[in-house]
Design a protein around this nucleic acid. Structure first.
Lengths: 107, 107
DNA sequence: CCCTTTAGTTACTTTATGTAACCAATTATA
DNA sequence: TATAATTGGTTACATAAAGTAACTAAAGGG
């Protein structure tokens, strides 16, 4: 009998990455710290969900939130070391998409 | 003004991978062709969702369905070349999880 | 004061997921 | 000859997550 068990760490990792938007947020933050509003515009996510995702990414130790008390207030989100170390994952997805995903395609 | 645009191929790729269960299904199928029932047991997914995911993975050209008219009928799902070429992605997630995810953790 | 900007939150609708019972095909068992 | 068992699903319904859009708080600027 095949009693293969999926690695629990892998499962934890993929449950993070397979949440809608989290991959795109991390991918986008690989370009450097960015503001809330900018993220909504570039990614095409609503404030409601971006807020939720950033909180859970912060809780997961992937993202940090930095407040600059300018006017109007500037808040930047950036990847932690843990977050940056997802770059090889994003690169692998990027590579695969270049080879296997046709460019056209609307939906 | 920063008019960065996220690569559409990357977006397509990640919209596939960020569907719940698809990552685990692909990861599991990297071990070779497997039957429907076996997948439900190993992954812990319901028949309803597994069926739906396998159909969309087939439509995306990542998985093929093979029917062996034995008794009871044996149907095996296996990765296509496109599917197997996601191995570097899965490996990268695996590597990251080994380094950054603590093993304990229930939910 | 009123307006603008940023960074969210709230309330509500729509879509996706979870759960469990059910079905058809086929062969073994009482 | 029923009856049960196994596989590969599907259906119907409940719950959770995501989408939409309006709203709020804080802090200047005019």
């Amino acid at each position: 009998m095949d009693t293969t068990i999926i690695c629990p760490r892998f499962e934890t990792a993929i449950s993070l990455l397979s949440q809608r938007w989290t991959g795109l947020i991390i991918y986008q933050l690989l370009n450097g710290p960015q503001r809330f509003r900018h993220l909504t515009e570039v990614i095409g996510i609503s404030g409601r969900l971006l807020s939720e995702r950033l909180k859970s990414l912060e809780a997961a130790g992937v993202v940090t939130r930095k407040v600059y008390p300018e006017t109007p207030v500037r808040i930047e989100y950036e990847l932690t070391e843990k977050g940056f170390s997802l770059k090889p994952v994003m690169d692998a997805i990027q590579d695969w998409s270049q080879e296997w995903v046709e460019p056209v395609n609307a939906k």
